[in-house]
Amino acid sequence: MPPITDNTAMHRFEMTQDGATAFITYLWHGTVLVLLHTEVPAIFRGKGIGRALVCGVLERLVEAQNVVDIRCAFIRHILQENPALATRLTRVRSS
């Protein structure tokens, strides 16, 4: 899988392959990182790129001990499938 980069200027985590970029948009609300939306280009769908991006970003956030607020339904879905990862995150209540 391609590496995940933090594009702070655009407030998104990105994974680029073959000229297309999958990303998770975020914003900081004080000390809480709010994960807003995951976007996966059509050419990546069904190939596990979105899942790899989400899991990679969440692992990074666990390591950094960031407090997160997950607003993205896709990320919440991935966490439901990965309860071990979910329990390692420090989260505020998701809306």
Rank of each mutant, 00 (worst) to 15 (best):
36 L>Q: 15
7 N>F: 06
58 L>A: 03
23 F>H: 15
11 H>K: 10
18 D>L: 09
47 K>S: 09
31 T>D: 14
79 L>V: 03
94 S>V: 01
59 E>N: 13
74 F>D: 02
79 L>K: 06
71 R>I: 06
92 V>E: 07
72 C>A: 06
93 R>K: 15
15 M>P: 06
34 V>T: 14
27 L>M: 09
95 S>R: 12
44 F>I: 05
18 D>M: 04
91 R>Y: 01
52 A>N: 13
45 R>K: 12
13 F>K: 02
27 L>H: 15
56 G>N: 04
69 D>W: 01
64 A>P: 02
39 E>I: 13
61 L>K: 06
22 A>M: 09
13 F>W: 12
89 L>T: 06
17 Q>I: 01
25 T>L: 03
29 H>S: 12
9 A>K: 12
87 T>K: 10
12 R>Y: 10
91 R>M: 11
66 N>Y: 14
81 E>D: 07
47 K>Y: 00
85 L>T: 00
77 H>D: 12
42 A>K: 08
55 C>Y: 06
52 A>W: 00
90 T>V: 06
80 Q>R: 12
70 I>L: 05
35 L>A: 00
75 I>E: 00
45 R>V: 03
45 R>D: 00
22 A>S: 12
38 T>D: 02
28 W>V: 02
24 I>W: 05
21 T>Y: 09
33 L>E: 05
89 L>P: 08
89 L>M: 01
10 M>E: 15
83 P>V: 11
80 Q>G: 07
68 V>T: 11
41 P>T: 06
66 N>H: 15
66 N>L: 05
11 H>D: 05
51 R>V: 11
53 L>R: 03
37 H>N: 11
78 I>P: 04
9 A>W: 05
52 A>Y: 00
11 H>E: 11
1 M>G: 15
68 V>R: 02
17 Q>M: 12
50 G>H: 01
14 E>Q: 13
55 C>H: 12
67 V>F: 00
89 L>S: 08
52 A>E: 08
37 H>C: 08
88 R>P: 03
36 L>A: 11
65 Q>R: 13
78 I>C: 02
27 L>D: 08
21 T>G: 09
28 W>Y: 10
84 A>G: 11
53 L>V: 07
25 T>C: 06
44 F>T: 02
29 H>G: 05
59 E>H: 14
58 L>M: 14
62 V>N: 01
82 N>V: 05
32 V>N: 06
54 V>Q: 07
77 H>E: 13
74 F>Q: 04
16 T>Y: 00
40 V>K: 03
27 L>Y: 06
45 R>N: 02
3 P>M: 08
14 E>A: 07
73 A>R: 04
24 I>F: 03
54 V>G: 04
77 H>F: 11
19 G>L: 00
50 G>T: 05
10 M>F: 08
74 F>V: 04
14 E>T: 14
4 I>Y: 06
87 T>L: 01
43 I>W: 04
88 R>N: 00
21 T>N: 12
48 G>Q: 07
34 V>N: 07
67 V>E: 08
10 M>S: 14
27 L>Q: 13
17 Q>H: 07
29 H>L: 07
76 R>M: 01
55 C>R: 13
30 G>T: 04
64 A>M: 09
23 F>I: 05
32 V>E: 09
14 E>L: 08
11 H>I: 04
